[in-house]
Amino acid sequence: MDETGKELVLALYDYQEKSPREVTMKKGDILTLLNSTNKDWWKVEVKITVNGKTYERQGAVPAAYVKKL
């Protein structure tokens, strides 16, 4: 869990989004888990830093590609 009490997951593999509802992640990324009720796809929040600014993006990733921490 992070400092706000939200559950975290670890990306076990790289994943490139294939639709606007998904998010890209790299192996080793730590993501915030938002919903894991679907056994195949979990909704997560990814933090992306671009030019020193951090953005948050929500989307789905394959459940088999992440592990709860």
Rank of each mutant, 00 (worst) to 15 (best):
M25S: 00
V44S: 00
M25R: 02
W42I: 04
K39M: 10
I30R: 04
L12P: 00
L34S: 02
T4E: 13
D29P: 02
K53H: 11
K43S: 11
T4V: 13
E56T: 15
Q58F: 06
G59N: 00
N38S: 09
R21T: 13
R21G: 15
R57D: 02
V61L: 02
V46C: 10
A60P: 02
L69T: 04
E45V: 12
L33S: 00
P62A: 03
K26C: 11
T54P: 07
M25W: 02
Q16E: 14
V23S: 02
E7I: 14
V46N: 03
T37Y: 09
L34M: 06
L8M: 11
W41T: 04
S19Q: 05
D2C: 15
P62I: 05
A63S: 12
K53D: 08
K18F: 05
W42N: 00
I48H: 08
L33H: 00
Y55I: 12
E45Y: 07
E22Y: 05
M25P: 01
R21K: 12
L69G: 01
A60L: 15
D14G: 05
P20Y: 08
D40N: 11
L12D: 00
N35A: 09
K27L: 04
K53I: 14
K26V: 07
D40K: 12
V44E: 00
Q16F: 14
L10K: 07
Y13A: 10
L33Q: 00
K26F: 09
K6F: 12
V50I: 14
S19F: 05
W42V: 07
E56L: 15
E22M: 05
G28H: 04
V66M: 06
E56I: 15
L69F: 09
P20E: 12
K18R: 14
Y13V: 11
A11Q: 00
K68N: 05
V9D: 01
R57F: 08
K47H: 11
L10I: 15
E7Y: 11
G52E: 06
G5K: 14
P62R: 05
E22K: 04
K18Q: 13
V23W: 05
A11N: 02
T54N: 07
T4S: 12
L34K: 05
L34T: 04
L33W: 02
V61K: 00
E45R: 12
T32M: 09
Y13N: 08
A64K: 14
Y15A: 02
T37C: 14
L69V: 09
M25V: 10
A64H: 12
T4R: 13
T49R: 08
A11F: 04
K39A: 13
T54G: 05
T37E: 14
T54C: 13
V61M: 03
L12W: 03
L12F: 02
L31T: 01
D14S: 08
T54Y: 07
Q58V: 14
K68H: 07
D2H: 14
A63F: 03
N35T: 06
V9G: 11
W41Y: 07
